[in-house]
């Protein structure tokens, strides 16, 4: 049960993020969650949006370099320790976490973690064995 995340290349100069955001907003794309990774030289915008097909079209038309990748989402309680439980589970299974970001949800005053691993199948199994439920794309929309 994976989520399709869209990432966009951002050149390291003023206004690049704003330009992408403006294109998306103009076309009515809603970002559910996002994070920006930055290096000395460039940035990567990663986002979960409400309409991937539309987003990809907007990006392609705008000449952006983008990519769709599988990430995992887990809904957790907005309480101390809930992140630790997941990290410990992944650590014990020697799963390498590439990156992670989170947003708080309206439903149940909870939080949702989005993370990227190199081995999706193994991670899904490990989390399921530990009784941690992955959120589907549909569920994510309801959060």
């Amino acid at each position: 049960m994976t989520i399709q995340q869209i990432s966009v290349f951002l050149e390291n100069k003023p206004g690049t993020f704003r330009n992408v955001a403006a294109e998306l907003s103009k076309n009515g794309v809603n970002m559910r969650a996002m994070s920006v990774a930055d290096t000395a030289d460039f940035g990567i915008l990663r986002m979960i949006v409400d309409d991937n097909e539309k987003t990809k079209k907007v990006l392609a038309d705008g000449g952006y370099i983008y990519k769709e990748t599988e990430v995992l989402a887990v809904e957790v309680g907005d309480t101390p320790g809930s992140l630790m439980r997941i990290l410990e589970t992944l650590g014990e299974a020697a799963i390498n976490l590439e990156y992670m970001y989170a947003f708080t949800t309206k439903k149940n005053d909870g939080a949702c973690l989005i993370f990227r691993v190199d081995d999706v199948a193994k991670t899904t199994q490990v989390l399921s064995d530990a009784g941690i439920k992955l959120a589907s794309a549909e569920e994510l929309k309801e959060l």
Binding site: T39, D41, F42, R46, I65, T69, E98
Partner: peptide, 15 residues
Amino acid sequence: EMTPELFSDVAGSIT
């Protein structure tokens, strides 16, 4: 110029 082949959502693979 960045190319689709070179781009990745993981910063480390680009660097």
